[in-house]
Design a binder for these strands. Sequence first.
DNA 1: TTGTAAGCGTTATCAT
DNA 2: ATGATAACGCTTACAA
Lengths: 356, 356
Amino acid sequence: MARLAGVSQATVSLVLADKKNGATISEETRRKVLDAARSLGYVPDPAARRLAAARNNLLGVFSFTATFPTDVEHSYYPFLVGIEKEAAAHGYDLVLFTGSSTGGAGPAGPEALSRVRLADGCLFLGRHAPADDLARLVADGFPAVHLGRRDEPEGLPWVGADYVSASRDVVRHLAELGHRRVLLVREDDEAPASSDRERGFREGLREAGLPQDEAVFRSAAPEVDVTAERLLGWVAEGVTALVVEETDTAGAWRSVLGAAELAALDMPGALSLALLGSPPADLADRPVPTGFDIPRPELGAAAVRLLASLVAGEEGGEPLVGCVLRPGATAGPPPSAAGPGTASPPPASGRGAGPT
Amino acid sequence: MARLAGVSQATVSLVLADKKNGATISEETRRKVLDAARSLGYVPDPAARRLAAARNNLLGVFSFTATFPTDVEHSYYPFLVGIEKEAAAHGYDLVLFTGSSTGGAGPAGPEALSRVRLADGCLFLGRHAPADDLARLVADGFPAVHLGRRDEPEGLPWVGADYVSASRDVVRHLAELGHRRVLLVREDDEAPASSDRERGFREGLREAGLPQDEAVFRSAAPEVDVTAERLLGWVAEGVTALVVEETDTAGAWRSVLGAAELAALDMPGALSLALLGSPPADLADRPVPTGFDIPRPELGAAAVRLLASLVAGEEGGEPLVGCVLRPGATAGPPPSAAGPGTASPPPASGRGAGPT
DNA sequence: TTGTAAGCGTTATCAT
DNA sequence: ATGATAACGCTTACAA
């Protein structure tokens, strides 16, 4: 220890810690200690440091699938970008629990989840987390945050994208373009992400004074069956814009895109399309869909922020992160509109169509 | 501590450590401890564990740039894939030290690097690591492994791709296709990665009994100036294949590709091209270059393997990981060859041209 | 077979 | 302003 080298003892701790509170170190000893430390190449042992401080400045990241799958597409990369940055900003290092991906060693049982306790708190990615194990963590007061909206283990804090507002904004955008008949195509799935989008969609309609009856088309979940006939039927009924739900498989979007192609519909011309999310990577060559982007890095950062505040014993803040509208190229004025950008005032309803 | 919950005390340590030597725990206490631990969700504190001179089953990963930069292209992702898998296989969790990216907390001084001592060992990514800080770690006997060949802090173990063999194989491949005049285009840079490639290139020539004089063209580093005229000149001199070095910027490759285009050379027909590495992402739409791929996940895995053996107190093994030849589409038989695949026996030298 | 006790290197709380 | 000294939670002889 540098105590021997220098002239003092645990005073070293004080000078090296650079405490902000009581400025209680004489310049002389300070120098002595610093010099001794430098000449000895002394570095405080982080393990001892953390042991004494009762916290280890470690934030866990637990994913139930491999954190780094071979297929980059499915990875948590965009979240990790924000997570790493925010963690660094708060002075935390990250523990990546090679959780369920236990390729050969440790047991993948419930034990695995317990390991996260070695960190000061933990972030959970992906929806495969066993609710009861998480409940246990929460009940024990262990700081945990789920990345993505989650109702299941009651009391589990989470951060998620604000699909409601984002979906509302998309509808507002369409209304401003002049659309009066807008239809939502969604999969028949009761996931919160789905319901939130529908809620936002309906809010958007209401706000713009548009009719809400028959405004939603639900299709069987796995294969969405929007046929060309159905599409043409809608157009015949006066629908000028389709708002499509986004899911992992993008089933609805693919289906609609395929049908539009089959029906040989001029895309922004005869029918406007909007996607409630981002298009899948394999459709990257298609025109950029009008819709919104989930700010994944920002979501990751928000999760870390929340987790850090929980670790610090504070209450968590706003769990919702705003999405950003993507104008895109698949939506334009409706066919009947006088000209581009000329949004005619709403014929029905007494409420205005403009932004409220 | 679980001691209170169960009936014993530091015996907990013994049963949780699963010591291999003297089987000295009665099945009964063992169960008691295990049960108590499970019901309490008890996890040994890594810091305390490490402090007590044991190990905490944590492996560090330290990169001097962000591990997850916004731009996926520049990330260590492919390495992480292998690192995560191998770490899991060895029963290690990963601690991501949010390196120099210290966006707000501690300074980037030596202190930053010493945090890694919390783990049993650490992997270093990227060449921005301050050599002296690393030297300190090594001198202290801390298990550290650098991902990528590194000479700087002497004694720092590393794993890297075997560019020598890979480059040799590329030349062999060309020779087997029938090429007798092969030219290496490299940047004027003394990086080990460059010299290794040249060495392998020369080995390949020798093995195939091809002339080594004037077989290497060196160009200024930043902007590689391979002009169309120069290219045509080489072809006129009888050069039928170009082997191009790979660097971060792919300057040489871009230059050669551009010149070949300008000169309107039929690519595999009039001149064969090979790249000593992988093409940059923005050239993904071009024909796949003949050359080799660096098995990044395997490299990451090898690094973890080496690190794990160092942690276990063993000597490290083979630091070189083989690359895999990529046949590609930019190399074919030379114009003069009788037909595809008909490699004529070497006219010069007494040594065979086939695989040795 | 299991309990006791001595550290491991820091930090934090008191006295000086 | 600084020197003792008691934790911090664990491992590991060593004793019982």
